[in-house]
Structure formats: C-alpha cells, structure tokens
Design a binder for these strands. Sequence first.
DNA 1: CGTTCCCTTGAGATCCGTCAATATTAGTGG
DNA 2: CCACTAATATTGACGGATCTCAAGGGAACG
Lengths: 241, 241
Amino acid sequence: MTLAPESNPKIQDTPPFRIPLSDADRAFLSGLGATLRRYAPHETIMRQGDDEGRAFIIHSGWSCVHTDLPDGERQIIDFPFSGDIIGLRAYQSPSYISLTSITKLIVFEVPAKALTAAVEHSPRLAGTFLSVAARQRAILVEHLTNVGRRRGAARAAHLLLEIGTRLGDGQRLASHYECPLTQYDLADALGMTAIHINRILKDLRELDLLSFRHRTVDFINLPATKKFAGFNPSYLLLERI
Amino acid sequence: MTLAPESNPKIQDTPPFRIPLSDADRAFLSGLGATLRRYAPHETIMRQGDDEGRAFIIHSGWSCVHTDLPDGERQIIDFPFSGDIIGLRAYQSPSYISLTSITKLIVFEVPAKALTAAVEHSPRLAGTFLSVAARQRAILVEHLTNVGRRRGAARAAHLLLEIGTRLGDGQRLASHYECPLTQYDLADALGMTAIHINRILKDLRELDLLSFRHRTVDFINLPATKKFAGFNPSYLLLERI
DNA sequence: CGTTCCCTTGAGATCCGTCAATATTAGTGG
DNA sequence: CCACTAATATTGACGGATCTCAAGGGAACG
C-alpha cells in the first residue's frame, strides 16, 4: 500500500492523485513545489498558532493532528494516513492545529498557494481536493459523534474499527493489524484518561470483542464488535479515489 | 445582517460571495441554478443516508446539522449561520448528516455539480469555497476539542460564546443575544443530557458568568466567562470574507 | 385557556477521573 | 547479549461528574 521508504516517492503517484489525469496535469503536479520530508517519531511538524502557508500530504507512517489546550492537555483530531491532506487552505493563515509524528513519517510538504494554483489549473484536481476534504469532514463528524454520543467501551472499539478500515486502503477491514498508538494516544483521541482506556481495553478483552496489546489489535469477534460499537463504515467510502 | 425575509434574496448578494467578483462571476453565480427555499421550524431539509446531489447555503434562520444514531439519539455537529455551506461536495453521494430547521429558515439550494462548475469557472470562487470549508473545519475541530476535553460547564459556556460571536458577523461578541435553542438542542450538541445541561446553566448563573433563560443569553461577566471556558475566537477569524 | 413542549428539581446508580503504587515493555548504551 | 532507564501498562481505592428514573412546574402557542 505504501512505497518503500528507501525509494524517493513522487507526489503524482501518491494516493489522492492516483486518478485519471492528463499528462499536463501530471507534469503540473510534479512542478508544484512539493518537498519530500522525513521525520523521526515524536517530532512536531506543524504547531498550533504558528502562521502557516504549508500543507502536507501524508505518504507513509503514523501521525496525529491535534489541538493543544492551555493546561497542557491535547485533543487528537485525527490519525491521518497515506494520501490524507493536512492544512488544505487557500492562503497563509495561523494554524489552529498541530501535527506530530508517532512513528517515522514521510510527507510531501506543499505551499498552500500551490494548492490554490492546482485548483485553478485543473478541474479534475479541484474535484479531487473537494472529495478529499469531504471525506475528511465525514471522518471528523463521525469522530465527534463517537466522542459525544457513545460510551467509553463502544467509543474505543469504534476508533479501532475505523483505523483498521482506513489502513486497508479504505474498504476491507482486517481481523488483525499492527498499531503503534499508546493508550495515551487513544485517550487523547477519545476524550478520556489513559487509565480509563486501560480498563476499557481490559473489558473489551473480557467481552471477547477485541484485544489490543503489544502494539497489535486483534478482532476476536468482528461482527459482534461492529454491532457493539455501532460501526457503519459508509462514511469512509466517500469517493475514495 | 440578514436581508428582510419578505424580499427575494439573491445568491450573489449572500455572505460568502460578498467579495470582489467580476461581473462575469456575478452573472455566473446568478445562473448557477440556485433555488430559494423557505422552511418552517422543525422541518427536515436533508436526511442522513439519502442519496444527495444538493448543497445548501444558509441565508437566514437557525438550523442544525446532525447525525442520527440507531437508538434515536442524535449528535448535533453545527448550528450553521448565514453564508455557511452545507454539503460542499463534488458529486452525488449518500449524505452522512441531516439538516433540520429550528426556526423559520431560508436557504439557497444548489446542485452539487453547480459547485464543481463554479470552482472550474472562477479561481476566485474556488478560493472562497476552500476558505469557507477551512473555517467550517476549524469550527468542527474546536467543537470536538470542546466535547472531548472540557467539562460540562466550560463546554456549555464555550458553545454559547461561539454562537454569540458567529451571530455578530464574525468578530465582535455581544453581551446579550436572542437564542431559540432548547436545552435539548444544547445537550445534543454538547454530548450530554438535557437534565444535566439544566443543572449546568443553573451553575453558570450562580457563578455570575452567564444566564440563558427565556430564549435569551446574557453574559454577566464576559471576561470571566471567556477565561472560564478557555474561549479564544481566533479559530473563527479564518479569512472571513 | 387548555395542551404541549420545555424547564426544574431530587435521589440513586453508573461512568469516569484522580491519586498512588507497581509491573511490564521498549529502547539505549556498553 | 546484558544491564539500565524511561516509557508504557496495570491495578486499587476513592471522589466527582454525569446519567437515569421520577415527578412537578412553567412558558408558549393555537
């Protein structure tokens, strides 16, 4: 699903642009001014409050988009995956979010103005950006619904189901995947404390629904888990290209 | 701030398009195929799950965007105001949200394809859509942060501060405004029960921070309330045009 | 001027957070 | 490969926040 990190990936081959594009469009993309950047785990790539004119397109690796609160807490907004765009905007403006790597991370850094230029240049690309933005909005809406209206155990299960689905390039959900998130990460995404997440994961294991230990998520009873979490993946299917 | 409902407002005069546009752009907008629609309170304008090819631009009135859960509960995602766009998408696709009026509501209904056409037609409009989408995303991110990381009283105060700011065309926060939301609406937006919202509003009154009774929000001590809620309106200022 | 929402309050149960202590795992350098 | 260290995970006890169930009271609207 992701290119080997050793090669030097090109933006025009990365997921959101794997669509029928004219040669002119491809040439345009490669001339966008995208810079390939590699980050070590736990690096800050973008910080809330900084004046930003950059956007990022994830190539590979795990990271999180989050807000920072005055008391040092944070709310994780999303774990973006390959092809997701962070900071889609038209102009320079202060960033309201931070982007932090979790594992080794490879991203394309693009000037925000280049995105505007791309939209002007190609209706096909404009449609792609609209679709990517719509899908990300759907994910965020589901995240808010999850935090606002599901109780802890269902909330955690829902997030792990979503991640499992998004990892497998959109549609199919594996019964098992590697997951480098800590219980602190989960807590910050789900609006709870890590201690409570720990108890919830224990409950989910004892309910024979799923197990998350040693960086591995195992779905023990996938249909029951989907029902338990109220997970309906249709919100992830929005025009994934 | 809003046109008199008796007149027949035109889309090219409505907030997101109050920007320097060429005559050709204005003519294009008026030919978009926008339909003016009026709804009574508590009508469903768009329902989650329906296949949708429409987008809506709010002209005036109160409404809510929400998700529906199997058990009949709902999570309110946003209370959109004049100029906000609902359903910004490139193509026909199933809707993952519902739109319901709260008061009498006037909206422009636009075919989704018309938005794509507008983006193709005018870079200025494309930039406008990107900006509107970025601002709405910032609002949604702050909403998730609010629900995930603030306790009840601060959460409620934060929402009422945000609404007060958005009502006054973006920047200035009035010390008093009319608010037709019920405590059930607040509860569904904040991820709590209406009974608990009731107790929280009582607490906020007794703390001399704000009063919400009889459809009226009064900020008794605005600086203290902002501090209490951790309210920093910079996320609302994103390129409001 | 009555009916329907909507608001208000109390008591008890449950979920979740805080504080504290310890065990386990992953990472690092020798 | 081992020893050491820091990060992460686990568990218990307790308190606070929020939900549920139940019952009235008040406001808005036809």
